[in-house]
Amino acid sequence: SPTTLPPFFMRGSIIQLADGELKRVEDLKTEDFIQSAEISSELKIDSSTVERIDTGQTPNAVIIQFGVGEHKAQVCVEVLLEYPFFVFGQGWSSCCPDRTTQLLELSCAKLCVGDVCVSLTLRSLR
């Protein structure tokens, strides 16, 4: 059950792309994820569409239902309201952008049903 956010979403965190380039988390672009996954032999980028957002089982949590990949396989995750997802062509987005900005100083859009998020699967699962 989610209680804290991982440290790498904090504004200013240094992220290493697959080609070795270093960027701050707030400077990442959609292409950085796509190009990193292209280099990776194990990981593949999927498009995961937000299909439902429900209240979670603990305070400050939400359950997000995604349709993953071309077959729209249904996957649910429970995360904190302020947990950021990267939306294609838009950037960091969360269910409560105000909390994300307050806690992480990471500027965020509102995550909505219909948004298409960057997600990963293993290439070998295909």
């Binding site: 979403f9 992220i15 994820f33 990193s36 996957v75 997600s119 990963l120 699967t121």
Partner: peptide, 19 residues
């Protein structure tokens, strides 16, 4: 300064094999 790999930022959403 810690450096984090890009893939740690992305949720791993793998469909289950059943149904």
């Amino acid at each position: 300064v810690p450096v984090f790999p890009w893939h740690s930022l992305v949720p791993f959403l793998a469909p289950t094999q059943s149904d």
